[in-house]
């Protein structure tokens, strides 16, 4: 019984991390008014490049760094096209995903089947002795600990600092923000790049810890699930944790049923569950559409900013 509990909870956390990182990044990006549908592509590029770098340098931390840089670079493309050239954000994000899918499979073709260095579990002394939650929360990989810091940090940054206030102003009413002297362009660029770095981090987590190695399209739609999670979270980092954990929990159940050989639900239905769950989440959130503004959807999401002359 106890081992089942440990297995389910640990795997839940582990399966939710990649989506969580990407969701956190996209929350910041969308709060600035930029919709980046290229998360899947950025995650794939992050996963591929970080695995390649960790293989080359034999150091997973350098791998993560490379994943962050790749994510940032890809987001920069999106930023340049949507902010600089004011291109359609939907089309541009889709292009980014297609481009990332292709480029990661192309560049990563020599990496398939290789085993490189990967992150190990760090046992945090004392803390992991806390009954019930200790062994789950503090026998994890360092990247998981990173998320413990990121979630409150991003929340404080967004909702309790001047920077966050300006960022949200840019997403709500860029013209008004511009008049008060906030550089709309700079905030949007930085927020988009930050989103890309987080997506890259999510990808690195997959290829350096969760399913170590590189496989074509290994994210299997997690980038898209992250975009749905942003809506579910109502642009609040803490609620993003809840959404990601629910996603992770479904994955954990699937592994548990497979490992234990219990077939209450047929396997193919289990495999569909995360996607069905995302659909249900989308539906439930939009049932409160009338209250969407109150929920935190940036008013100028997806609208290019143009200074009136």
């Amino acid at each position: 019984m106890e081992s089942t509990y440990l297995f389910l909870t640990t795997v839940t956390i582990q399966s939710s991390m990649a989506v969580l990182f990407a969701t956190l990044g996209e929350i910041v990006t969308e709060k600035s008014g930029i919709l980046n549908l290229g998360v899947e592509g950025m995650m794939l590029m992050g996963a591929m490049s970080s695995f390649a770098a960790s293989l080359y340098f034999k150091n997973p931390w350098l791998g993560v760094t490379c994943g962050l840089i790749t994510g940032a670079f890809f987001a920069l493309i999106h930023a340049f096209f949507t902010i600089g050239l004011k291109a359609n954000q939907v089309i541009c994000g889709l292009s980014l995903t297609i481009f990332g899918m292709g480029l990661s499979s192309f560049l990563g073709r020599f990496l398939i089947g290789k085993t490189g260095t990967r992150f190990l579990i760090w046992h945090v002394p004392i803390l992991n002795k806390i009954p019930l939650v200790g062994p789950i929360l503090f026998n994890q990989t360092p990247l998981v600990y990173l998320s413990y810091i990121f979630v409150p940090l991003i929340w404080v940054l967004l909702y309790k600092t001047n920077i966050g206030l300006s960022l949200r102003a840019v997403g709500e009413n860029p013209t008004a923000a511009d008049v008060t002297g906030i550089s709309v362009v700079r905030y949007r660029y930085l927020a988009t790049i930050f989103g890309g770095m987080m997506a890259g981090l999510g990808g690195s987590y997959l290829s350096l810890f969760y399913t170590p190695g590189w496989k074509e399209n290994m994210t299997a739609g997690q980038g898209w699930i992250a975009i749905a999670m942003v809506i579910f979270s109502t642009w609040n980092p803490f609620r993003a944790v809840i959404g990601s954990l629910m996603f992770g929990g479904i994955n954990a159940l699937q592994y548990y049923f497979q490992a234990s050989g219990i077939t209450i639900i047929p396997n193919y239905i289990l495999m569909m569950l995360p996607y069905i769950f995302t659909l249900v989440v989308l539906f439930l959130i939009n049932q409160t559409e009338g209250a969407k503004r109150k929920l935190g959807a940036p008013a100028s999401l997806g609208v290019a900013f143009e200074r009136e002359l």
Partner: peptide, 8 residues
């Protein structure tokens, strides 16, 4: 996958 890259 090269053609996918070119498409993108």
């Amino acid at each position: 996958s090269l053609s996918l890259v070119l498409e993108g």
